[in-house]
Each structure stands twice: as C-alpha cells, then as structure tokens.
Nucleic acid binder design. Structure first.
Lengths: 139, 139
DNA sequence: TTGTTAGATTATAATAATTACAATCTTGTA
DNA sequence: TACAAGATTGTAATTATTATAATCTAACAA
C-alpha cells in the first residue's frame, strides 16, 4: 500500500507520490518516467515531470522500485521486488518479466574479489505475440 | 584485423574507421563514443563525433562490437566477441569483464515462447581495488 | 485551529548523449 | 582519370534527464 511505503521511508505523504506509487503497484508494463507523467497528468494537471523523476529517484534509492536499463536511451521502472529477468521485444519494444531465479546465476566463478551488490539480466529477441504472422516486417 | 573486418562487412576502408576499429581491437576498457572520439582526435584532427557514432552503429548492427548498457545515461562498447558478463564498480565507475559462460544461464524455463536472440548480464558492486582502504567514502 | 518549517512541487533552464541533416569529400571501380 | 555511391564533417535538432529557484503544503506543535 502506497501510504505505508512512504511512511516507512520517512517521506511526506503527497497526492503526487501516492498517485505515482499507486500507478506502479502491481504494474508489469515497465513504464518510463514520461509514461508515468502522461498517464497521471489528466488526473493531476499540476503534476510536473520533475516530480515524477524526483519520486522515482527516492524509490529507486530505497530499493522499492528497480531501474531497468534494457532500452538504449531510456530507463524504465519496475516495482516487482522479486528478482527476475527482463525481455525486450525488438518488434513491439515491450519489456516482459521472466522469472529467472537468482540461483541460476548464483556466485559465478569469476566474480571472486568483486563485491556483488546487485545484478540484472536482460534478454533480447521477439516476444510470442510478435512471432505470429511474421510481424518481423514491422521492425 | 581492422581492414578485414571492414571488407567482410562490405564497408569502405577509411582512415577513420580503421582507427576506430584498431582502438577497439582487444580493448577491455569499454569506451564510450566520446572516449573513442577524445582518444583519436589528436591523431585525426578532422574526426567528427558523428563519424564515431556512425561507425559504432554499423559495427554493432553487424555484431562486431557489443553495446553495453550498464551505466545510466551512457552506452559503452565492447569488441570482445566471446559471451561474457560485465561488472560496474560504483566507486571508480569502471566496467570489468566477467567470464560468465552462456551455459550458466542457458534456456531458463520461463523463456519458452520467446525467440531469444541475445542477452546481457550486468553486475553491480565494488571492484577489488576499490574495496581496499575503505574507498567507499569516495562514493 | 493556526502557525511554522522542513521538505515537496512546480516551471523552466541547463546539461548530456545521441541523432538528423545537408554540404563536401573520398574510396572503389570502370 | 572520372564517376558515383557511400563516408565524413560541422552543426542543428532531439531526447532524456538533472539543476535551480520560487512557491506551496504536509506534518507537527502550540
């Protein structure tokens, strides 16, 4: 629940933050900052893109939301706390969750000496829907 | 050899492209487009940043060079054709190669239905050097 | 309730990375 | 050597993001 998340982090409870958190909660679409801004702007006309960025920054720093760098020039955000991989379809440009378990990648031999704090696995290709009917032309 | 790479790809053999390819060959520093530009500019004063970007684009599309998206707003490039992982040190901001074998991640159960063309594994933390002497203050 | 204040929001400017463009130049080939 | 396709260049435009400073508001105490 968005309210509890903000309280837990010692942040002020503002309508903008609640709206952003509510939009993210359970969201598997991996929106960008601008996606979030555009979705919320109609309901919160005073909302600023800066606020979206600010809010995302604190949420990411607190580990409540993960930053996904699967696309070239644009970050997107994922509220799912369970470790998992991501798949970018090169046709529809959507990002999908893949439930890669951490154990499948645990402690690779060559990581000795490095203090591992986090990791990300990104997959690239074509999603099931875009494989139908040779949508590849849509590239 | 840079010359052969260009011929293989049907690209014209220009001094700029040769210089870029030679700089990349065996390079494990993961330079950005600007790094490459700055390195070559003294020797090739006419070199344009646009040419660096253009050349990198064709090399990446041809699969000769890999694009690494481990840092937030900046891409970097890796000529190593052998599949491997990357580690970003949050102190010194360097990117290191880690020889994660493909088999360690091969065909995860949940990838069924997705046409997998490529994948990337990014690790985050502190590199061996930066762990010495509590450099963590330098964050 | 009201007043206070730290912190949040806002609009806008600034920055950084990358891409687009059009003019000029060069490589590869006839 | 001449030509044409393709490459390079400088610059402008674009895109994503961060910085700034003025204004506003949530939280708390009186």
């Amino acid at each position: 629940m968005a309210k509890n998340t903000l309280k837990k982090l010692g942040l002020k409870l503002t309508p903008q933050r609640l709206a952003i958190l509510n939009l993210l909660e359970g969201n598997t679409k991996h929106p960008s900052a601008e996606d979030i801004y555009n979705k919320l702007k109609p309901q919160y006309p005073s909302l600023s893109l800066a606020t979206v960025y600010n809010t995302l920054e604190v949420l990411v720093k607190a580990g409540e939301v993960h930053e996904i760098r699967i696309k070239a020039g644009k970050r997107c955000f994922d509220p799912n706390p369970i470790p998992h991989g991501h798949f970018l379809c090169r046709i529809c440009e959507s990002v999908f969750d893949l439930d890669i378990k951490p154990l499948e990648i645990q402690t690779p031999c060559s990581i000795k000496g490095y203090l591992l704090e986090n990791y990300m696995i990104y997959f690239y290709g074509i999603c099931p829907e875009c494989q139908e009917g040779d949508n590849i032309k849509d590239r």
